[in-house]
Design a protein around this nucleic acid. Sequence first.
DNA 1: CGAAAAATCCCGTGTTTACGGGATTTTTTG
DNA 2: CAAAAAATCCCGTAAACACGGGATTTTTCG
Lengths: 209, 209
Amino acid sequence: MKTSTIIIEDNVEYCNEIIEKLRLIENVQVLGCFHSLEDALAFLDRGQTADFFLVDIGLPGMDGISGIGEILMRNPETKIAMLTIFDDKELVFNALKNGACGYLLKGESEGRFQKAIEEIVSGGGFFTPSIAQMVLKFFRKKPFSKHKITKREKEILQLMSDGLAKKQISDRLFISYSTVDSHVKNIYKKLHVNCGVQAVMKANEEGLI
Amino acid sequence: MKTSTIIIEDNVEYCNEIIEKLRLIENVQVLGCFHSLEDALAFLDRGQTADFFLVDIGLPGMDGISGIGEILMRNPETKIAMLTIFDDKELVFNALKNGACGYLLKGESEGRFQKAIEEIVSGGGFFTPSIAQMVLKFFRKKPFSKHKITKREKEILQLMSDGLAKKQISDRLFISYSTVDSHVKNIYKKLHVNCGVQAVMKANEEGLI
DNA sequence: CGAAAAATCCCGTGTTTACGGGATTTTTTG
DNA sequence: CAAAAAATCCCGTAAACACGGGATTTTTCG
């Protein structure tokens, strides 16, 4: 059974290019293409659907990123891949957050393109190396933390992130409130923040906890 | 110039298997293999190095995950890929956090294995489809938020996560302190938390912000 | 239109925080 | 060993928070 596919891309020329590429991939059957997200959503609202959507990110009207959410709201099982010339960090992560299964750069070689599509329709995820690189960087703890937090401080930061008050932390660690307070003060200084929320957020971002 | 490669794997048999596979890949030159991380670190401490390390995750003595950090501490430019039979979520993310460039399952087909290695040594990242799937799930916003936060609440949550105090938020949004206080109270109720840190953390986890 | 949801506002109180100033005792490590 | 780093403890105060109780006005939407 082939994977029914819809393309959403406003540039007609490029659209045809993609269709040609997709024709070469077995297991994929192109149902058609729309030139705006609104059209595609109307299609879904008519009760019709597809297994796989290939969506351009820079569409007139509703943009691709918002579109992902809309499509998934109507059909949560759909697989969606973004198609774009940009590899902007924010865009990529926003797309992923909204539920995209993959992110393809338009310049991708034919082989890579095919490979990626195959992975996605078969239920896997796919990142081109540059996207994978971004994801790696995202996860990677920052260079052994300019902010050299001590073991105890890290421990306390962790409990803070669980929502414990200083008093509760002191009880948990069998130390006095004053000690916790001191540690917290030091943490704030090291992270250059001045409240718990910021501290926990920053620690989180920097992979300290 | 070939990528000098070191394998760290305690199972001698499997180690040889890997070497055989790597021999087939041009651009890769296997320097040798160690059967424990300690040995590999000693090698590095002797001033020698390699471009690429392939590290088993389940080693006796120091485990692979901790090892990543140690290796990178001695040679930050090194590329590291984990080799394992498990695709446990925690392990994968911990490896990535510590700086791994890829994560390969031992059962991987020869073709995939080769592909993955090629991507990694050429500076890209690589995720097998199952790992990519995990990463996707990680990013994906949770099922349209059981916790239906309103627009305003989301806005306030965002400012909270920036470390703003309620007073500052009220100034920023041109509303009174009381109003912010009310919104915050509602947020706490909806998220079942009772302090700002928890609220922001939870919102963060659930992809609400 | 008319009800429900969201957004706005106020008061009061006890608790907790942030942060300034200290000081002492372990632990680590060159 | 001796210095440095980490962990422990105390006091005091102004500010901010959590949370209970309200109430009114917009917006949204069937």
